[in-house]
Write a protein that binds this DNA or RNA. Structure first.
Length: 117
DNA sequence: CGGTCGGCCCGCC
DNA sequence: CGGCGGGCCGACC
């Protein structure tokens, strides 16, 4: 067969979902889990991103509070923030406004509206 | 709007 | 197997 399925806890699907996040946008662990068809597995997403060596835009994944899930001020935290800011993502008081930057957006219309203003 | 508290589920002793 | 902690989350003060 082409590929084995179900023996990797969905790691591949998680990475595929992460790769779909557009530049300058962010997604949350929970959203990625859903997109990967693995509801309730937000923590698994974190585990996969932590250990993977695959080239994926891991920095575009943050938590549902709009914050980076590394200890504030740590090397990893700084690195992730820098990468996001380099893509134009703005932090306000240490957090990203998911209403503006979250992908996928709640609705296409809301997305268009927010991005025009 | 920020801080806590349980759940949830997986990965690794 | 049993326990524990994690790049989490939503509900509730």
């Amino acid at each position: 067969m082409t590929k084995k399925r179900g023996d990797d806890s969905g790691a591949e699907r998680i990475l595929a979902a992460v790769r779909r996040i557009p530049r300058g946008r962010v997604s949350t662990y929970g959203m990625i889990a859903d997109l990967a068809g693995l509801p309730r597995r937000a923590r698994l997403v974190g585990a996969v991103l932590r250990q993977t060596t695959a080239r994926v835009p891991w920095h575009r994944v943050i938590n549902a509070s709009g914050r980076i899930s590394f200890p504030a001020g740590s090397d990893a935290w700084r690195r992730q923030r820098e990468r996001l800011e380099a893509e134009g993502v703005v932090f306000v008081r240490g957090r990203v406004d998911l209403k503006h930057y979250a992908w996928p957006a709640r609705t296409v219309q809301l997305d268009e509206l927010l991005w025009k203003m």
